[in-house]
Write a protein that binds this DNA or RNA. Sequence first.
DNA 1: GAATTTATGACATGATGGTGACATTGCAAT
DNA 2: ATTGCAATGTCACCATCATGTCATAAATTC
Lengths: 230, 230
Amino acid sequence: MSEKTILLVEDEPAIREMVGFALSRAGFRMVEAGDANEAHTRLAERLPDLVVVDWMLPGTSGIDLARRLKREEYTAELPIIMLTARGEEDDKVGALEAGVDDYITKPFSPRELVARIKAVLRRSIPEEQSRPITVDGLTLDPSSHRVTVGGEALEMGPTEFRLLHFFMTHPERVYSRSQLLDRVWGRNTYVEERTVDVHILRLRKVLAPSGCDRFVQTVRGAGYRFSQQT
Amino acid sequence: MSEKTILLVEDEPAIREMVGFALSRAGFRMVEAGDANEAHTRLAERLPDLVVVDWMLPGTSGIDLARRLKREEYTAELPIIMLTARGEEDDKVGALEAGVDDYITKPFSPRELVARIKAVLRRSIPEEQSRPITVDGLTLDPSSHRVTVGGEALEMGPTEFRLLHFFMTHPERVYSRSQLLDRVWGRNTYVEERTVDVHILRLRKVLAPSGCDRFVQTVRGAGYRFSQQT
DNA sequence: GAATTTATGACATGATGGTGACATTGCAAT
DNA sequence: ATTGCAATGTCACCATCATGTCATAAATTC
C-alpha cells in the first residue's frame, strides 16, 4: 500500500510537532498548515488522503473550513477529522452537520489520533477518488498526483492538474467557463472567465507533444469539452 | 446574455445608493425595496434573478424574509445573498440554515458584492435538461453539445445547433419565421425574418452529406418543419 | 408569364477564442 | 532580508468564426 498523506491544520506548533511525530512513526506522510488559507494552498497543490482540522483556528474557523471543503467538488470526498475542545457538545453537533467524519476531544493521545485516522481511512473508499483514470494512453493518477502518457511523465501546474482531473472524470460533456470556474477553481473564488482560456492553453501545451491535446476541445459559444471522439 | 435583475432589500438609503451604483455599472438592473413588505410587492410584480437582503430590517427581519422566500415554491429557487453585521457568527449560522446562498459581512466593498452576485448567479444556472435525441440516425446530444450521424460528428455554428435542437424537440410541426425567431433567437432580438432562411440553409448544408437535410422541410407560405416523413 | 415566395452566394461587422507578455504573489533557497 | 522561481490571473492584440443583411437567382403559384 502506498504511503497515505495527512494534512494537519493546526495553529499551535506544539501540537503540530507532537502529531507530526506520531504520524510519521505510524507510516503517514504529513503536510502542515497553520490556518485555513494555508490549508487551501496545500490542497490546491496536492490532495491528501485525509485532513485533520483544529476547531479553533485564527481567521476562518475549523468548522467553516470543513464546510467549505465539503461544498467544493474537488474536496468533497476528503475525510475530515476534527479536533475539538473538551466536552463542547455544541461543537460535536456543528461538526457532524458540517459533514465531519470523526472528531477527537482535546487533550488526546497521539495513539488515539492515529487509531482514528486508520479507522476513517479504512471505512472511506479510497478507490472512488484515487483510482487512476486512463483515456487512450493518457493516465492521470490522483493518488500520486501524476499524469503520464506511455509511461512518460508530464509536468504541469496544480491548476492544470485539477482542470485535467475534472475533465477526465467528466468527459464527453461541455462545460462553460463559469461552470469550470465553479467546479475546478471553487465557488468562492472570483476570477475572470477568460482566465479559463489561459489555463486551457497551458494544459494543451503540456498535452501537445503527445498529441493528447486533441481531447481538450473548444465548443464555440458553449465552452470546453474533454472527449475521445474528434 | 440578457440583463439580470437584482432585488435589493435594504432600509438605509446610503447603502441603497452605493449598491445601486455598483450594480448598474456592472450591467445589472436593480429593483429596490425598503422592507420585507415592499419586497413582496416587487416580487409579485416581477421575479428578479437574485435577491440581496439586509439582515437588519424594520419589521420582518431579513432572515425571516429569506426563510419565507425559500418556503414559497414560487421563490424557492431564487438565490439569496445576505448582508450581515460585522463578525456576528450567529448570523452566519442562521443564514446558512435559512438556505441563503452567500452572505457578506458589512462593511463590504461594492466590488466584492458584485463578484459574489456573479458567482452565485453562475452556480444557480439550472442544469440544462439533456437527454440525447435521435431521429433516424441523426443524434443530438445537448450535454456534450454534439451532433452525430452514424457516429460521425457534424460541425455547425451555435445558431444552427440551437435551431436543430429546437426542431428535434418540436418535430412534425410547422413554425413560422417569427415563431422560430422567438424560440430560437429569443423574444427580444430584432433581426430580419429572412435571416431564418439563411440559417436554415446553413443547417441544411451541414446535414446534406448524410442526407439528413430531408428532415428540414419548407412549408411554402407557412414556414419550416422538422419531420421524418417526406 | 407575372407575381410571390424561397434559396443561395457574397460580404461587412461583430463576437469569440488563442496567444504572448506582464505584474503579482507566495514560497524556497540563499 | 534578498533573490530566484514557479504559479497564477489579467490584459492586449490578432486571427478566425459566426451572424445578419442584401442582391440576385430559382422555384412555385396563379
